[in-house]
Simulated scan of single mutants.
Amino acid sequence: MSTPHPSPTPNPSPAPPIWTAPPVARAGGGVFAAVGIVLAGIVGLLVIAYLALGLGVSSLVIGSLLALVPLMIVLLAVRWVDRWEPEPRWALWFAFLWGAAVSVAVALIVDLGVQLVLAFAASQGPDEALQAVVQAPFVEELAKGVGVLLLFAFSRSHFDGPVDGLVYAATVAAGFAFTENILYFGAALAEGGAAELGSTFVVRGLFSPFAHVLFTACTGLAIGIGARRGGGPAVLGWFLLGLIAAVLLHAFWNGSLAFASDAIGLYFTVQVPIFIGFVLLAWFLRREEMRVTRTRLADYGAAGWFSPAEVQMLATPAGRRQAVAWARAQTPPRTAAMRKMIADSTHLAFTRHRIVTGRGGRNAAADEQALLTAVTADRAALLR
């Protein structure tokens, strides 16, 4: 027989609670974010300088502008997945810069090292097919995956499960693909002119903007599963499983493009079904997030922290839309306050879920009480 979990602390009165000794919640990785973003930004400047030297400034600018198109497509999709429980902006910025700068730098350094080794060995040069199927998948997925693993390690309170892993992995991959597309678009323009650039843009920018997202999502989902199961050292095992899946999928994708005789037929029969499968998985995971939010906010409702109407408002898409519309119609508008209450309440629900499932850790109670205080302040701001 399982041991029953305690219910949330009852709300003794409608007034905001007064904590005689308020617990200190975790910083949420703020120091890590600041240091990581600065270092990744420095690496990014070095990568930009390298691209400018290799491609020329004009090709770099044109390639960058075109690379914004697939980047926006991917980021809009990430935003859709992330709308229910949005991740902190600093974490997403770190994820993007890690992919766009650090992961690319690692891939470039390894590629240069391989070329130097082969040159000293008096070899004929690297085998392009071998690089595409073996070297690129392993090096790139490892570099991107480490970024997601760092986010888990230093932002544990914002890494609740597979959806968070998917969002962070997709953002890292979006950054990597952005820089890689600049390189490919700039090289195509420099080597083959507008015609070559156009065909490269269609293949990489329109036909497969989500390729890197699909690969790295395997790693992010696996780390998210490890987080959902309690975290700890076991997450490294999940990371390795996800990394293997990401490398294999990346190798399969590159190999199919390298050796296929009918690239268009392969795209629609293999790559499109893989993409559709990931879309369905993302939809299912979002539905699970909604279920968790409704269940845990109902726990707080039973303890007096939320009314039944508020639970309905905060835990359903229709309720959230109506709430934001109401806040927008007020004078002055209170849209920002309503969105903050929705975000704080959702984070509260997932914090409670960690506690109930026994994986909250020593700081979960402090996180919970800080969020309860924040929700009470949010309600007061809306009703002021």
Rank of each mutant, 00 (worst) to 15 (best):
L285D: 07
G36Y: 00
A227H: 13
T200P: 05
L39E: 06
S261F: 04
A349V: 13
F252Y: 12
A222G: 15
L65D: 14
Q322L: 11
A95D: 04
W283L: 14
L243F: 14
F32A: 14
R228D: 05
I244F: 11
A211R: 10
N254C: 03
L314A: 13
I355A: 14
V24M: 02
R328S: 05
L281I: 09
T373Q: 15
I18W: 06
W305C: 11
R229T: 11
A329H: 07
L221T: 10
A251Q: 06
S59K: 13
E85G: 04
R296Y: 00
V102S: 05
V247G: 01
R362H: 12
G304A: 00
W253V: 07
G255A: 07
A174E: 09
A195K: 07
P233L: 12
L142P: 06
W93T: 13
V324H: 10
A246R: 01
G186K: 10
V74T: 06
L280T: 03
V163Y: 04
G147W: 09
N11A: 15
G63T: 01
P6S: 09
P332W: 14
T331F: 15
A318N: 15
R156E: 04
L66Y: 02
Q135F: 01
H250I: 05
A21C: 13
G198S: 03
F178N: 03
K340H: 09
V38D: 03
A15K: 12
G277C: 13
R291I: 15
R328K: 09
W93I: 14
D344M: 07
I244K: 01
L257Y: 15
W238T: 12
G360F: 07
A52G: 03
L197Q: 02
F278E: 00
A100Q: 04
F176E: 00
L60G: 00
A298K: 05
G198C: 04
